[in-house]
Structure formats: C-alpha cells, structure tokens
C-alpha cells in the first residue's frame, strides 16, 4: 500500500517543519509549499492527489482561504481533506473557512496531541494514536 500524502502549506519554514514532523510521525509522506499558489502549482503536476492538506491562512501570493476555495472548485481535488492551521481565531473566520469548504480548523498555538486528535476526528489516523 502506498503511504498517504499530506501537503503542508505555510509561509513560515519553522511551522512547516513542525507540521511535517507530526504528519511524518503518522506515516504520511509530506509535501511542502510556501503559499497557496505554490501548492496549486504542485498539485497541477501531481498524478495522485494528496489525501490531506494543512493550510495556513495568511500567506503571500495566494492565501489559505483562496486555496481552499480553488481546491473545492476542482473536481479532480474533491477527495482532499482540508484543515486550516492558523492564528485566525475569530469565530467569524472559522465560519468563513468552513463555508469555503475546509473540513477542520486548528488554532495556533496547537499541541501535537491536539493536531493528532483533529486528524483522528477526520478518520485519517486511528483513534488513540496519541496515547
């Protein structure tokens, strides 16, 4: 079985390293992008669509909300699970992201355990993987 793949989209290299470490621990193969535009370009060249994307909100070129909207408009990318990972924590922002098509929302700062629990909620890791 080929491993599941996760895109980590954040303009902060430090945050990408944290997220990459967590998904790698969960046996995902990680693909990094520095903004939404770069992520869309990478997706265009991929024959197999990653199962998961962890997406920052505030990024140059194409922000996370625009990325989510574009992914949702593309039938080829329908199966991707989209998780916003951002400091944007006003309730109205969470509602906007969910309305645009994000499946889950993790507020920074997050613990590794919280991220794993969210992915478990989405059925991407077995429950109890954190214990």
């Amino acid at each position: 079985m080929t491993p599941m793949r996760a895109m980590v989209i954040d303009d902060s290299r430090a945050m990408r390293m944290i997220l990459k470490r967590i998904v790698t621990k969960l046996n995902f193969e990680a693909v990094e992008a520095g903004d939404g535009k770069e992520a869309m370009d990478l997706l265009a060249d991929m024959t197999e669509v990653p199962e998961l994307a962890l997406i920052d909100w505030n990024m140059p070129n194409m922000n996370g909300l625009e990325f989510v909207t574009k992914v949702r408009a593309d039938p080829r990318l329908r199966e991707m699970t989209l998780v916003m990972v951002t400091t944007e924590s006003e309730q109205s922002q969470i509602v906007r992201a969910l309305a645009a098509g994000a499946h889950e929302y993790v507020i920074k700062p997050f613990t590794e355990g919280a991220m794993i629990e969210k992915l478990a909620l989405l059925g991407l890791v077995p429950t109890g993987a954190n214990s």
């Binding site: 309730q91 889950e104 507020i107």
Partner: peptide, 20 residues
C-alpha cells in the same frame, strides 16, 4: 482556554456551541 477547545471538539461544534 484556546488549548482546551483545540482538543476533542470538531470545528463545527466550536462555532455552534461556544462564543468568544
């Protein structure tokens, strides 16, 4: 706290049953 609501709750539950 933010750390507490980040754990265990679905985002839809956070917006539906909580207020800042």
């Amino acid at each position: 706290s933010q750390v507490e609501v980040n754990r265990g709750l679905a985002a839809t539950q956070l917006v539906q049953y909580f207020e800042r």
